[in-house]
């Protein structure tokens, strides 16, 4: 579970998160949507401790964040842009992170197979295509079987086949009861993957609830229409 109370963050004069409150129960798959620069990535990075909040509380799986780090053992994160040390070989990177954490990567072989990464394992990351780097990122995020998963625009660089495989995998993780946060600009994709949605606009949560309810409220058939309508509404 993830609980956020009055979370604020400013970068210089720019207030990115303006007092967010959020309660995501364990096992819920949630989409995070909003225009560019709304604060989606900042929110996820704050939950990870990459960005330090100015004020407010974050509680993840009953652990209050205060500069501690061990809670990250329970989180898998796939960043927006997958870029890794260029000279490193894929298999080395995977085992380096394994050694670093000292955890067993239970799904490593399975994910490598699913994403068809075997032919890439002995290549340097420098020569990997963008899509294959994304797959390495997805493998890193999920191989330790964490209870919480963050995906920041996961399918942005993937070809249709990989994107399909990735979504299949997400469905599996969902069935397995993982708590998930997925940011995306592709609404149809979110409809497939999540039941709940958070709509962020200028650092504030404008909507948080079930997708079904959002569609009903806005009398729309599709998520895209409902979100577009909310974006148009004056703040």
């Amino acid at each position: 579970m993830i609980r956020i109370n009055n979370l604020k963050k400013a970068f210089g004069p720019h207030q990115v998160l303006k007092g967010m409150d959020l309660n995501i129960p364990a096992g819920q798959a949630t989409g995070v949507v909003g225009p560019n620069g709304a604060g989606k990535t900042t929110l996820i990075k704050t939950l990870l401790g990459l960005v330090k909040s100015d004020s407010g509380d974050i509680i993840i799986n009953n652990i209050q964040l205060n500069g501690n780090y061990d809670y990250r053992r329970q989180i898998g994160y796939m960043p927006q842009q997958a870029r890794y040390p260029e000279q490193m070989i894929v298999s080395e990177l995977l085992s380096f992170i394994e050694d670093l954490r000292g955890d067993e990567a239970v799904f490593k072989e399975q994910l490598i197979k699913e994403f068809n990464l075997e032919p890439e394992l002995h290549k340097q990351l420098r020569i990997l295509s963008g899509g294959n780097k994304q797959k390495v990122g997805a493998t890193l995020a999920m191989m330790f079987n964490p209870s919480i998963l963050f995906f920041d625009e996961p399918t942005a660089g993937l070809d249709p086949r990989s994107s399909f495989i990735f979504k299949e995998r997400i469905q599996k993780e969902k069935v397995a009861g993982k708590t998930m946060l997925i940011t995306s600009h592709i609404m149809s994709e979110l409809e497939q993957l999540v039941d709940h949605v958070i709509f962020i606009l200028e650092g504030e949560i404008k909507y948080y609830g079930r997708i079904d309810d959002l569609l009903k409220e806005n009398r729309q058939e599709r998520l895209e229409g409902a979100i577009a309508k909310m974006m148009e509404e004056p703040a």
């Binding site: 990250r72 994160y77 960043p79 992170i97 670093l100």
Partner: peptide, 10 residues
């Protein structure tokens, strides 16, 4: 990016 990767680990 490498720093970010390491910082997302425990």
């Amino acid at each position: 990016d490498y720093l970010e990767l390491l910082l997302t680990q425990p």
